[in-house]
């Protein structure tokens, strides 16, 4: 399988409670807390689409969307 390329991080600001889990455990340090204590992708170019942030979020507030998935959605 080809290495997946990031399309975007979809962060649901209504649901994110600012626990910091996604931020702390991202090996690539892609995410940071913004001024309102919500997770934010500040270095998306470093994201390897491992989706660990998405799977560990206790609030189901973050979704990491890869390029091919987007095509699939449309197709």
């Amino acid at each position: 399988m080809a290495k997946r390329k990031l399309k975007e991080h979809r962060i649901n600001r209504e649901w994110c409670k600012g626990c910091g889990i996604c931020i702390e455990f991202c090996a690539k340090k892609v995410l940071e807390m913004d001024q309102e204590d919500k997770a934010q992708a500040v270095r998306p170019e470093d994201c390897v689409v491992c989706k660990l942030c998405e799977m560990r979020c206790p609030d189901l507030a973050i979704e990491v969307v890869a390029e091919e998935e987007v095509e699939e959605d449309i197709g």
Binding site: K17, M55, R56
Partner: peptide, 18 residues
């Protein structure tokens, strides 16, 4: 029912996710 009632960082949310 979202955002859910659990506290920030509650492990039960990770179980839900898993």
């Amino acid at each position: 029912f979202f955002p859910h009632i659990w506290c920030p960082g509650c492990g039960h949310g990770i179980v839900l996710n898993g």
